[in-house]
Design a protein around this nucleic acid. Structure first.
Lengths: 236, 236
DNA sequence: ACGCAAAAAGTTGTATACGATTTCGCTGCC
DNA sequence: GGCAGCGAAATCGTATACAACTTTTTGCGT
């Protein structure tokens, strides 16, 4: 599925080296190898990928359009540090669009799609039982891929791109505000949703999706701890 | 309202000259002063705004992320020429998200917002009765602003940005495939939607919104006339 | 020793330069 | 007359250079 997602955008383009850098950094952010707030200086990025600052800058700009990095004028680019309010908006957006995407996907889903989804779930479960950071990161990506694949099946490239943005930003939010050591997504809920789709019970599938999103959000601690930095941090 | 929309993004940023160029070009595209397919060479854009190719390029890249221009490797940037399929996806996306946005907006709407919406409608009506291209362009923008303002009222900046993209791209689609000489949006339908909101009849408001979108789409001729260029163009 | 000011270092914003790729027009051949 | 091939012009992709701004360090005075 990963290849399918990429192919759709690749086509003739492979636009430029900047694209590759953008993708590499995005992956690093989504997999949480880069923490929110980390500074991404143009020179450093350029050196890291052996390109000039021009390309590094282009990649960072691109990521800022996706909301994954924030560039501050004359100060530089940082891995985005979503505020609690932003976090709420991200999940509100997901609650708003994912049921609709699910409905469209269900209308066009093929047996092949379903088996691919199942495969994804299996992989996810396997990673879940594994130990180690590598497995954890792969699991994070896999759980997002479930939602992305639904968007892909829906056949609407625009919604798919939007979901990619939302999933990526969700990962950032979870990295910042997530509490449970458990992974980002309740794995079993994904399976339930597929089952509901197979049973042609669309309303139930949507309801499950909403619950699922609410579940993820419930694991967050979005109390505005605005730096809490001075006295409060030390008076105990 | 225009100022409000801009202020929200301006804040401290005003990031750079590229942003201004991007906005100027976008406005030109949305108001249909630039037709789909028009070539936007980096040098030309740079000269036009008296900046280097660097900034022109950045602006064009930004617009390509919004789907308003398509850049082809080693060939240049063009005002986007959405395919019929893309057009359908754009409107499918709008049908998917606008009812949700409407619901959120209705939940937070204030009397002040309503009067602002009414004001927008009045302006729209006034422009509608005027003659001339300038009025036509202003009307196009105004009719889009109605949808954008609902997104703004909804309080979700992410959905707002997404709607901005969808409305802008819709304008392109209408420019390409629209048939009626009449303006893009049925003006009266906007008023009906506001009325339904005021009556707390959300379901009706959503239904009106869906009809409204369907209406716009119905005015399009999305038959794939694939260039129609060879024999068909001349055999009559 | 502390605080403030000025300079130095580092980083971003923009312009220019150069190599690579495409496009277009020309010449020459069929 | 038309088409293939070649060369020039235009345009894009990327690197480098310089100016403007920010941050840090240094040094002086109190």
């Amino acid at each position: 599925m990963k290849s399918a997602v990429k192919a759709q955008q690749a086509e003739d383009s492979a636009e430029t080296g900047a694209q590759q850098i953008r993708d590499a950094i995005r992956e690093a952010i989504v997999e949480r190898r880069l923490s929110p707030g980390t500074k991404l200086s143009e020179s450093d990025v350029g050196n890291l990928f052996n390109v000039s600052r021009t390309l590094a800058r282009a990649a960072l700009q691109a990521l800022s359009y996706e909301g994954l990095v924030s560039v501050e004028k004359n100060r530089g680019a940082f891995v985005a540090y979503p505020s609690p309010d932003e976090a709420r908006q991200i999940f509100a957006a997901r609650r708003l669009v994912e049921p609709g995407i699910l409905r469209e996907a269900a209308a066009r889903i093929t047996p092949g799609d379903i088996s691919q989804l199942r495969e994804l779930l299996l992989e996810e479960g396997r990673l879940m039982s594994e130990r180690g950071q590598t497995a954890r990161r792969a699991e994070i990506k896999a759980s997002g891929d479930f939602h992305l694949m639904l968007a892909e099946i829906s056949g609407n490239a625009i919604m798919q791109r939007f979901m990619e943005e939302l999933v990526a930003r969700s990962s950032l939010v979870i990295a910042l505000y997530g509490q449970s050591t458990a992974s980002s997504c309740g794995h079993s809920e994904h399976g339930d949703i597929i089952a509901a789709i197979e049973n042609d019970d669309l309303d139930r599938a949507c309801q499950l999706m909403l619950h699922h999103i609410a579940h993820i959000e419930a694991d967050l601690d979005l109390r505005a701890r605005k730096s809490l930095g001075l006295k409060e941090a030390f008076e105990l």
